[in-house]
Simulated scan of single mutants.
Amino acid sequence: MSPQKDHLKDEGSRLQTTAAGATAGLIARFVIAPLDVVKIRLQLQTHSLSDPLSTRNIAGGPIYKGTLPTMRQILRNEGLTALWKGNVPAELLYVCYGAVQFTTYRSASLLLHALLGRGDPADGPGRPKHPLLRPAAESFIAGAAGGAAATAATYPLDLLRTRFAAQGNDRVYASLSRAVRQIYRDEGPRGFFRGLGPGLAQIIPYMGFFFAAYETLRPVLSDCWALPFSSGAAVAGTIASVAAKTGTFPLDLVRKRIQVQGPTRRRYVHKNIPEYAGGTVQVLRTILRNEGVRGLYRGLTVSLIKAAPSSAVTMWTYERALKMYGRLGLGRSREAKL
């Protein structure tokens, strides 16, 4: 059996891939929920402790500084459960996102394999001379497609997650169902897709680079004897995520700022969130003008801290869930009939 067939066989059936992606998303979300709340709070903050006293808007809400101090401040003022604010829509988001992402990634990979092949020089003339470039390019395209499809399909849940995490003790939304009804009534269907533009602009290069780096590093690290407990996939996922996250972080911050626009903008824990006009580029310019370059990277540290365990748990769980569902034969009999 050829290496290509072995690779495709290991990808599992469509149902196995979907179930493994959903399982990975579910577990990863619960683990990193507190860091996600801290990241969102920092991203929505337009001022910091290093700003001169005369320029601080104290009435605008709390001033957070650093990951652990922010976590302690939230615990002190809002209690332990505040670190899991927005966890219900976020769990739904991660499960649906993981399922759509990995399913699309698998489908796109299989399509690219069928159209372009693996680029093995032994396959004959017309193949590229650098076989490692083609798998990386395929992973980039498939990863970008998976990220874009998952972002668009689950975006309303992402917006709800952000708004719940941005709430302080004064609750803007009493429940998930009321939030859906209120947003639909006050902002219409388009209200659920505020910030989708920068979301797609961020996720396409992010997931493309992530999967390209992950698929390149995983085979190397999986055979590394120095990594215990078969943790090569987790390490590869961590490295790939940190590199991709840093490059696309400003677009993620812009997305968060736009998501809390609308009639409830002044009711979140940060009551001085600016009102932004125009699209993604205009918002980037406004933040640069008012907050400087540093303003585009508020929350980057906790985002990188979050990215490491999130991606490590996601990819580690995905690989093992895929193998487990494969041993159970999930979806095999149905696909065999098809």
Rank of each mutant, 00 (worst) to 15 (best):
194 R>V: 01
196 L>Y: 02
196 L>R: 12
197 G>A: 13
198 P>A: 11
198 P>S: 13
200 L>V: 13
203 I>E: 02
205 P>Y: 14
206 Y>K: 13
207 M>F: 15
207 M>D: 10
207 M>I: 04
209 F>P: 00
210 F>I: 00
211 F>R: 04
212 A>I: 01
212 A>H: 05
213 A>Q: 07
213 A>H: 04
213 A>G: 07
214 Y>M: 08
215 E>M: 14
216 T>V: 04
217 L>Q: 07
220 V>N: 08
220 V>G: 12
220 V>F: 12
224 C>H: 08
228 P>S: 03
228 P>D: 14
229 F>Y: 00
229 F>H: 14
232 G>T: 06
233 A>D: 13
233 A>H: 15
234 A>D: 12
234 A>H: 07
235 V>K: 00
236 A>Y: 05
238 T>V: 03
239 I>S: 02
239 I>M: 03
240 A>E: 03
241 S>Y: 05
241 S>W: 03
241 S>N: 11
241 S>F: 09
244 A>Q: 10
246 T>G: 08
248 T>R: 04
248 T>M: 06
250 P>V: 10
251 L>S: 02
251 L>G: 06
252 D>M: 10
254 V>R: 06
254 V>F: 00
254 V>P: 06
255 R>S: 10
259 Q>H: 04
259 Q>L: 10
260 V>K: 03
262 G>T: 09
262 G>M: 09
263 P>L: 08
263 P>C: 07
264 T>C: 00
266 R>I: 02
267 R>K: 14
268 Y>K: 04
269 V>Q: 06
270 H>A: 12
271 K>Q: 11
271 K>P: 11
272 N>C: 09
273 I>C: 07
273 I>P: 03
273 I>L: 03
274 P>T: 07
274 P>H: 12
274 P>F: 09
276 Y>I: 01
276 Y>F: 13
277 A>N: 11
278 G>A: 13
